[in-house]
Design a protein around this nucleic acid. Sequence first.
DNA 1: GTCTATACGTGGATAGAC
DNA 2: GTCTATCCACGTATAGAC
Lengths: 188, 188
Amino acid sequence: MVKIVSYKDLVDKLTDIFCEYGYDGTSLTILSQNTGLGRASLYYHFPGGKEEMANAVYEKITRDFTKLVLSPLATDHNFPTKIKNMLEGINLFYNNGQRSCLLDVFAIGSTKNIFNTQIKNAALYWKDSLVKIIKDEGIDNNRAILLSEEIIISIEGALVFARATGDFESFNRALENVLLTITKNILD
Amino acid sequence: MVKIVSYKDLVDKLTDIFCEYGYDGTSLTILSQNTGLGRASLYYHFPGGKEEMANAVYEKITRDFTKLVLSPLATDHNFPTKIKNMLEGINLFYNNGQRSCLLDVFAIGSTKNIFNTQIKNAALYWKDSLVKIIKDEGIDNNRAILLSEEIIISIEGALVFARATGDFESFNRALENVLLTITKNILD
DNA sequence: GTCTATACGTGGATAGAC
DNA sequence: GTCTATCCACGTATAGAC
């Protein structure tokens, strides 16, 4: 286990814990045991308790997603490079498909109503970013929307499938398939 | 609210509750309030408590999935009919994409280690069923595997996307898109 | 078959010493 | 900044009356 020596390490560890147990399934006992900090120490860092910890984790995830997945789409590179960089970002963000619970954790249970608006906005922003750059390639609006949805759906579905089956190779296959779909539909 | 007058009604109601709150987020108080039965009455029907209730729900879901999604693939109908019936079953099972948490509930938190083998087997069985009937259409093994994965991934991804965005129309679009993909790749 | 009452553990959270 | 000790609310589960 990586020893926790900074606030960043702590949030990283919290992310793993919430990811494994879910928000409601994560107790302060679990948090304490897995971080190596006593309950009171956790409250020193997060006076708001469990909810504040979840918030810190959510914000970290959002920053990572923006940096790794969204920002490549907003660069001045050419279209194929943007897509390639986004897919590499996806692979990093989801750790080759092995870290698929990042959103599920906050989309289910007590946290559902707290985060669903933010999750919705993130998903729609991702979609709009794709629509925009696909239209720039000369594709009409309706087809751009369908293609953008197809890309996101394939990625999210691949995560679900990989986790369900334990076959994480399928995640890489699916990402390659996404690239192929884009190539066939846009660059040809 | 539908009044509970039978064991089946009770399991249906439990399904809704677990779906809304997640397994760990569902307390006996919530179960009691939402079913209209006292705690002790719930224990009368399910001596094993919450875990036994979750088991009953899981078994119900498995039966429904088998009946609606898997069994159409094992009929003597022609290929397009099998696929069409499966997609209709998907629509019923997931209530037009609005009931997307059925598996997530058991794939996260305390129930994860209890059900993950069964979820895995169900996913692989679904995939194998698709591979089989696609190969019967004259597609070679590798392409049949890729196509089968693509079909399942698109469906599961569409559920995630529809829930995240709240745009349930996208689920129907995605199902139509699946049908289109199959048509283009197999029937042409 | 459903209820009220109750037992007992674990949950989240805080006070105060070091 | 971390700990021990402690609080109270809520969790699951059961006993026994109706």
